[in-house]
């Protein structure tokens, strides 16, 4: 069988992680890497032994031996690149968030239907070991009906974003849109649709940022459950990336904290401890494999554009709530982050 051809667009933080997973998938071959900066594209092509590199992604779309485009670019470029790729009949795996604008999310969804391609948004938490177990526990009914949840992720300010696009409100939307969307998507997937959002936060510490570096939100779900979601990019440097999930139901409690459930911890002189939880088939591998299989076996990938748009809508409601200092009901009727 001929292997499916993959091109990765964007040679940054997440594409490196994706490439490590792509390389372990037998049914595909990564044939091209694209980045606006030639040096970055060349660097990754050498690092991951990718035969060709480009600075113009259209050149890749024109290649008939490329079947899958993995869009790993900054959020504000997602819509254009995805829609272009789909118009060349490429299957698209798109990094989260789908966009920072609902209108653009709709354009992407429409294009995926019009050109009849496989499309998935990479909400990796749905493939993450402890979150999969948590989802199963809830599905099995072990904790009864979910009533109150608590989810947070805390980290120092991410310093890896290209031209610091994460710091730009109009490009990333800030910590809640970019990072808390993981927890929001997971909670929506596990508990159900969100009805109303109240959020508080702002640019509390990062002097040169226009996008929020701290947000917490109170969510009301349609089924009467409530949740606390917190995202922080203002932890001290060396602070270990920390994630926490707790769901309490009518019949039980589930709780998991990545700081107390690591299978490997490394301590070195003068460096903060590093905790790892290696599992053979990690979340990124499973996520990408799932998408590849959706093409080979022709099924609908699990995280549709519509699903991703719903999660986007919740985090945007959070941003709107901060801007207006009042609770925001869903659905949203207008754009929150303007161009």
């Amino acid at each position: 069988m001929t292997k499916l051809g993959v091109a990765v667009i964007g040679a940054g933080f997440i594409s490196k992680i994706h490439l490590e997973a792509w390389k372990r998938i037998e049914e595909i071959e990564v044939k091209a890497i694209v980045d606006l900066e030639e040096e970055r594209a060349r660097n990754y092509s050498q690092l991951f032994k990718i035969p060709s590199f480009y600075t113009d992604y259209i050149k890749v779309l024109e290649r008939s031996d490329i079947d899958i485009i993995d869009v790993c670019t900054p959020t504000y470029t997602h819509a254009q690149i995805s829609v272009d790729a789909m118009s060349y009949s490429k299957n698209v795996l798109l990094e989260k968030p789908i966009s920072i604008r609902l209108e653009e999310a709709d354009e992407i969804i429409k294009a995926s239907e019009k050109y009849d391609v496989k499309f998935m948004v990479a909400h990796c938490l749905r493939f993450w070991p402890e979150y999969k177990v948590a989802k199963n526990i809830v599905e099995r009914g072990d904790i009864g009906d979910p009533r109150v949840a608590r989810a947070y992720r805390l980290s120092p300010y991410p310093d890896w974003s290209w031209q610091s696009w994460l710091k730009d409100f109009s490009k990333s939307g800030g910590v809640f849109v970019d990072m808390s969307i993981h927890d929001v998507d997971f909670l929506r997937w596990t508990i159900g649709d969100v009805e109303e959002v109240y959020a508080r936060g702002g640019v509390l510490k990062t002097k040169d940022a226009s996008s929020y570096d701290y947000v917490h939100a109170l969510l009301k779900f349609k089924n009467g459950a409530i949740a606390y979601v917190e995202g922080s990019w203002i932890q001290p440097k060396n602070f270990p990336f920390t994630t926490y999930l707790e769901i309490v139901g009518t019949n039980g409690i589930l709780k998991v904290d990545n700081q107390t459930t690591s299978s490997v911890t490394v301590f070195k002189e003068n460096v903060a401890p590093i905790s790892l939880n290696p599992v053979g088939e990690d979340a990124y591998f499973l996520e990408i494999k799932h998408f590849v299989d959706s093409i080979i076996k022709d099924y609908k990938p699990m995280i549709s554009g519509i699903e991703a748009r719903k999660s986007l809508e919740v985090v945007l409601a959070g941003v709107k709530s901060i801007l207006e200092n009042k609770p925001v009901k869903l659905p949203l009727t207008e754009e929150v982050i303007n161009k």
Partner: peptide
């Protein structure tokens, strides 16, 4: 202050 109360755990 803003606050929410959900459906009860113990109905």
């Amino acid at each position: 202050v803003y606050a929410i109360i959900g459906e009860k755990i113990r109905k």
